[in-house]
């Protein structure tokens, strides 16, 4: 029996509400009064240079770290019993266990989410990825390249189409062909009304702005833990300091 959440929120519902979120490690401020809202069907890029707070923001939304402020997913605190399971999450780095196979990994996380993936039809429905994107299900994780392992982890994040998907640099380790497949997947997610917050390094967004415009509605630019721009993807202009600092929004030219 596949559990799906996609039909739950209405089109206009605020699916994700981030209000005044701040986070510090010792005396270093990582996030400073960040507020973002996503409605159902919104796909937003969270863009910033290294250390700008993107990953920490996603960890706050996933309920994995303490913070000041409020995060609600479908009105629930993601750290609460009601909020758990509403989020699919792809960490920036994840090392899946090597002795198990791709099928066993997918099967395990499907069981956690009470999703059946026994028949090919159920599997295709539960794992919304293009054919050929995943390696063979019988392949041991230990035999896969870094990019292939990344694809398995992405499948885990998208498993069962959770109401909110958080992807931390999903294109890392993917080659050109599979990056294109990733965009297809995200386009399909967007077409199906999925909601996602995707952290992207500034360099990648600068290089792939045109691709990303077909995938995401918005780009939220983080600089030193603060939101400095929130607008269409096209509104971000390439920066002469790509990869070393935040790009400036067009409005600031």
């Amino acid at each position: 029996m596949m559990r799906t959440h996609r039909q739950n929120p209405s089109k206009d519902a605020k699916l994700l509400q981030i209000r005044g979120v701040s986070k510090s490690y010792a005396d270093q401020v990582v996030l400073d009064d960040v507020s973002i809202e996503l409605r159902k069907g919104d796909i937003a890029l969270l863009v910033g240079a290294n250390g700008s707070g993107k990953s920490t923001m996603l960890r706050c939304v996933a309920g994995l770290t303490s913070f000041e402020g409020t995060v609600r997913v479908l009105g629930a605190d993601p750290r609460s019993a009601d909020g758990r399971g509403l989020i699919g999450y792809l960490p920036q780095l994840v090392a899946l266990p090597e002795p198990v196979t791709v099928g066993e990994v997918i099967g395990f996380f499907a069981r956690l989410r009470a999703i059946s993936v026994r028949s090919p039809e159920e599997f295709a429905s539960a794992v919304p990825l293009p054919a050929g994107f995943l390696p063979a299900l019988a392949s041991p994780i230990g035999s896969l390249s870094g990019g292939m392992r990344r694809r398995v982890a992405l499948a885990v994040a998208l498993l069962g189409s959770p109401p909110l998907v958080l992807l931390d640099e999903p294109a890392a380790s993917l080659d050109e062909e599979h990056t294109a497949s990733l965009w297809e997947t995200l386009q399909a997610l967007r077409a199906a009304g999925g909601t996602a917050l995707i952290a992207m390094p500034l360099m990648v967004t600068s290089l792939l702005r045109h691709d990303l415009a077909s995938v995401a509605d918005r780009a939220v630019l983080l600089d030193q833990g603060r939101v400095v721009h929130d607008g269409p993807v096209d509104s971000l202009r390439p920066s002469p300091t790509v990869g070393t600092g935040p790009a400036l929004p067009r409005s600031s030219r």
């Binding site: 994995l64 999450y89 960490p91 090392a95 266990p97």
Partner: peptide, 15 residues
């Protein structure tokens, strides 16, 4: 924790 599997587990519907 070192493999970043722990965050992957803790976002599942499991306390």
């Amino acid at each position: 924790r070192e493999r970043s599997l722990l965050p992957l587990m803790l976002v599942q519907p499991l306390s």
